[in-house]
């Protein structure tokens, strides 16, 4: 199914140890340990409200961890200053659960927005070229002058992904890339995630509760249960278990 994927298990791009995060009384992450290897697609499965989004928001520096260490591309992000965090963020792409397109801007302006601010040496022509190329990659060249409100959910997702790819990130974080999409559109997104992995040699964390997405995109799968990673391995390894909580997850996905 996937070819030419080189995963370098000696090179960890993200290392998380004993990560804890709570909001008031609510303990969301209770000691998460995780590694992400160069070039791999890591799928994080878990039910709603288990803290999957919180986990990647911590990686991207949107939330602060309470305890534990989070190392991203050899930078410890706890206590990092704003400037270093921004430098790091240029190497991280974040695809939001609801796409988070800037709705006062056209598709073109959405894509140009980070580019104009971070690669000031580019000429107008080069900017145009980068935007058009990327839109072609996600198969949405025709939407270039549309506003986000005119796009369908699947299109928005793809534009969102394109916007994060424009700075050529080393790490991609996808927050529920297929949530709320029909099976065929979901498949397009799954394929896009794999193409990104192949073309950009990026390492990705894919958060989802869609098992089809997990199966297709994931080289390795971890399951977030009760604030900790409980199982990990390939898709089949994870779901060959007697753990009722894991089985329930599988059954509901494929029997409703």
């Amino acid at each position: 199914m996937k070819e030419n994927i080189k995963i370098d298990t000696t090179n960890k791009v993200i290392t998380i140890k004993g990560l804890k995060k709570s909001f008031g009384e609510l303990d969301v992450l209770k000691g998460v340990d995780m590694d992400l290897y160069q070039g791999e697609n890591l799928v994080v499965l878990g039910r709603s409200g288990t803290g999957k989004s919180v986990l990647i928001k911590i990686i991207a520096g949107l939330l602060q961890p309470d305890e534990g260490s989070v190392n991203v591309l050899n930078h410890e992000i706890t206590g990092i200053n704003e400037k270093e965090m921004d430098a790091l963020r240029l190497k991280i792409g974040f695809s939001f659960q609801n796409s988070a397109l800037y709705d006062s801007m056209t598709v073109r302006e959405n894509l140009e927005f980070p580019l104009r601010r971070h690669e000031k040496e580019l000429s107008e022509n080069e900017i145009n070229q980068r935007v058009e190329e990327l839109l072609e990659d996600v198969g949405l060249s025709q939407t270039i002058n549309q506003m986000p409100s005119q796009l369908s959910g699947g299109q928005r997702k793809r534009i969102g992904i394109a916007r994060t790819l424009i700075l050529k990130p080393e790490i991609m974080l996808y927050d529920e890339p297929t949530a709320g999409l029909d099976p065929i559109t979901s498949m397009d997104i799954n394929n896009l995630i794999n193409e990104v992995q192949q073309k950009f040699h990026s390492s990705s964390i894919i958060i989802t509760h869609d098992l089809t997405c997990a199966k297709i995109t994931g080289d390795r799968i971890v399951m977030l249960l009760d604030g900790q990673f409980q199982r990990q391995g390939t898709f089949d390894e994870v779901f060959t278990t007697e753990d009722e909580r894991v089985k329930a997850f599988y059954d509901y996905n494929f029997t409703d």
Binding site: I92, F94, N98, A100, D103, F113, P114, L167
Partner: peptide, 17 residues
């Protein structure tokens, strides 16, 4: 407010703007 709620402000932040 709507940019905050729809995570557009977070999106700017993660793109280091």
């Amino acid at each position: 407010g709507s940019m905050k709620v729809t995570e557009q402000i977070d999106a700017m932040e993660v793109s280091a703007v």
